[in-house]
Amino acid sequence: MQEYILLMVGAALVNNVILARFLGLCSFMGVTTRIDTAIGMGLATTFVITVSSMANWAVEHYLLVPYGLGYLRTVTFILVIAGAVQFTEMTVRKVSPPLFQMLGIYLPLITTNCAVLGVALLLVEGKMTFIAATLFAFASSLGYSLVMVIFAGLRERLALAEVPPLFAGPPIGFIVASLLALAFLGFSGISTT
């Protein structure tokens, strides 16, 4: 149990997808102008990363490794991720059309989010069991959502601050992101091995 907790803390905080691995930066800058939209995007991404990582683990262990198809890994994972996003879209649309109309804005953004593929490839590197892989993917996406929400909160405050005109907009956003990354470096002092 302790091993799983350390794995999750390591994935969410120490090796954060955005601030330590620099994945998913596009949505990090683009969808963090409000906390509400950041939470929406974070939840959608958490769902897709977890589900697609489970599918990718199964494909890796029951198809790619036994048949020596490791060279097709990246292409296969991209297909699986696209399928997972498509499945999520279709399901939300079937489950509730109003929900689909309301939340559909986030789904196409996830297809082009490199964090989803990055987490899947990290799972292969880690040679994890199914449950460990699922928890790692879930924790990684929780870390992604956490940083999105923190950054959105900072940007909401920045919008009210008096920023010099030269720094207004994306420049001050990048400076704040770098400070946030420095703050998260503090977690690297936690030993998770």
Binding site: D36, T37, L43, A44, F47, T50, V92, V95, L99, M102
Partner: peptide
């Protein structure tokens, strides 16, 4: 409502 919808569509099944 957006937060509730996100929670319903994604967090609940997950």
């Amino acid at each position: 409502a957006l937060l509730k919808a996100s929670g319903t569509a994604y967090a609940l099944p997950l």
